[in-house]
Amino acid sequence: MLKINLLSRPALRRLTMLAIILSAIVGWVWFAMIRMPGISYRGQLPSLNQQELKLQKALRQDVQKLVSELQEHNFSSYNNLVAAANFLESSFTNAGYKVKRQQYQFANRKYDNIEVEIPGTKIPDEIVVIGAHYDSVQDSPGANDNGTGAAAVLELARAFAGKKTDRTLRFVEFVNEEPPFFQTPDMGSLVYAKRSQKAGEKIVAMLSLETMGYYSDKAGTQKYPFPLNLVYPSSGNFIAFIGNIKSGDLVRKAIASFRRHVEFPSEGAALPAQIPGVGWSDQWSFWQQGYPGIMVTDTAPYRYPYYHTAQDTPDKIDFEKLARVVAGLESVIADLAILEIDEPVEQTRAEF
């Protein structure tokens, strides 16, 4: 018996060393997924400038229109959904865009993704998509989910109207993200991404703006799925940039740009898509077609107590903070649309 134990010691040492190496690899991979460039802003927020004050007012008006006037707008409230699409189309048109409707049918009804485009001047075949779904979940007016995202896309399109970018910019309002369409072939963004792939389009970045308007400085207001709760803050006062592993470079470029331009708390991660919440919006559809995509969000059910309820109303939204985030995203989009995707994010963007 003693002989067997002596002979097993080298094997035990090898197993111990292997366990140490594997633990180090796992730790390094985990660190690589959550380590982001730059530093999240901490401290008192500065006063809004005049542009941000105008943006705050416009975002409030857009959300009020989508929610207070249209109330629930989805497949079960079809007329309201059509009215929401018409409002978005007319708003894009008034901003000077030519609107394209990507229409498809489900259960003998027509549904529309709504798209406007700024063709790139130098590399027009490379496309940056900024999108959000404009439908609400059943039995909810959807002020935060996703009136904030839909309004943000609209205001960002207005901000870029008449400007020129190296890459092509597309602003898209997607239909039918919520159940029963969620992660099915009839999800609006999946219909869109499939058609883009079939057409051979080169989408180099997709930003999904999802549930972006609820913030709190109180400890314990932010929740996470394990093990994210071990490393991220407990106060829900930040905007999150979330992608899958393959979209890690895009996550890092986007949050680095945001942190350079905006004094507002931000967190980011490139995580396995299997972690609950990572794929819970329209970026998931682009992943299915091999495109890089990230979600910009207040983390929705992990923070927002009125998520998917009848109480998801405009009075719950912090429009001041939402305006700060959207203003920051304008700079992020400018960086992505002007700089080469594989260039270092530290480079200064060109002026329009």
Rank of each mutant, 00 (worst) to 15 (best):
I255Y: 07
K321M: 06
L207A: 00
P37Y: 03
Q197F: 08
E177W: 03
S285V: 10
P276N: 04
V82H: 01
L339P: 00
G147P: 08
G27Y: 02
A337K: 08
Y111G: 11
R14E: 08
F181G: 06
I34A: 03
N146R: 01
I239W: 07
I341Y: 08
V332D: 06
L154T: 13
N113R: 03
P305L: 03
P124G: 05
S234W: 02
G27N: 03
E117V: 14
N80R: 11
N49V: 00
G131D: 05
T221G: 08
S91D: 15
K202R: 15
D318I: 07
R167C: 02
R260N: 14
L53S: 12
R101Q: 14
S281L: 03
A151V: 08
V296G: 05
L81N: 11
E69M: 07
T16R: 05
D342K: 13
K110I: 14
G43K: 07
W287S: 11
E320Q: 15
G27Q: 00
L169S: 01
P180R: 02
S281N: 02
V29I: 13
V231G: 01
Q71A: 14
L154I: 13
D298G: 11
V345L: 01
G142R: 05
S208E: 01
I34N: 02
G328W: 06
V63M: 07
P10V: 03
E89S: 13
P265Y: 06
Y97N: 05
N176V: 01
F258C: 10
F182S: 03
L207H: 03
I127A: 05
V116C: 10
G268T: 01
S216F: 01
P119S: 10
L228M: 12
Y214Q: 07
E330A: 13
P141T: 07
A300L: 06
V128G: 03
E69I: 09
N237T: 09
S140M: 08
G147D: 04
E177M: 03
E173D: 05
M36Y: 00
F174H: 11
L66A: 05
R101M: 13
L209M: 12
N80P: 04
I39E: 15
A240H: 12
A205T: 04
Q289E: 15
G27S: 14
T299Q: 02
R167I: 02
I114M: 06
E69Q: 13
E115V: 13
E330N: 12
A11G: 14
L48W: 10
A269F: 10
Q51R: 12
A24S: 13
I341L: 10
I39W: 10
N74L: 06
F238N: 08
V175T: 15
Q183E: 14
